[in-house]
């Protein structure tokens, strides 16, 4: 089944810092829900291992993330594909960072397709689950900057 995601979030960081964070595997590992490891396999290419739970099924997924059409520190194209025994998914997204009051505005738009057990079991809630996961990502991302801001203040 198809999933569309679109939205924008304000992050308390200037575009350059936000850009760096979004390109840092260590930050992403902390922010992506269920992400256990993220290993660089080439320029702008990563391998990820995730543990996720959707509705009645949960499990581990392995996937690949590739970044392209990068225009630092403004836009980037991301493609994701992954599979586990409980399902598979793939998608592409584009995000755009613009300076905004209080930091940066991060706008994103993406489309994905999921299949396998997860699609069937979770189809009625996949839309809200994916929104929830995106929400968790941004909550974690904001924490990154709160943390560093606090850290910076202490220094």
């Amino acid at each position: 089944m198809k999933i569309d995601l679109e939205g924008s979030e304000t992050i308390a960081a200037d575009p350059e810092r936000l850009w760096l964070a979004l390109n840092d595997p260590a930050v992403l590992t902390r922010c992506i829900p269920g992400c256990r490891t993220m290993t660089e396999t080439g320029p702008d290419a990563y391998k990820v291992e995730m543990q996720l739970r959707v509705a009645a099924v949960g499990g581990s997924f392995e996937g690949e993330i590739a970044l392209s059409d990068k225009t630092p520190p403004r836009t980037c194209h991301i493609s994701v594909s992954g599979s586990g025994s409980l399902g598979h998914g793939s998608g592409t997204a584009r995000f755009e960072i613009t300076p905004a009051e209080g930091g940066s505005l991060l706008a994103y738009q993406g489309a994905g397709e999921v299949g396998g057990l997860v699609a069937g079991v979770g189809q009625r809630i996949l839309g809200s689950v994916s929104k929830h996961l995106v929400g968790r990502f941004f909550t974690a991302l904001r924490k990154e900057f709160e943390g560093s801001a606090a850290l910076g203040a202490a220094e």
Partner: peptide, 14 residues
Amino acid sequence: YDEEGQMLTQSFMD
């Protein structure tokens, strides 16, 4: 089944 050939009604929720 959806257009991608996935079965959407796999449990008694659906």
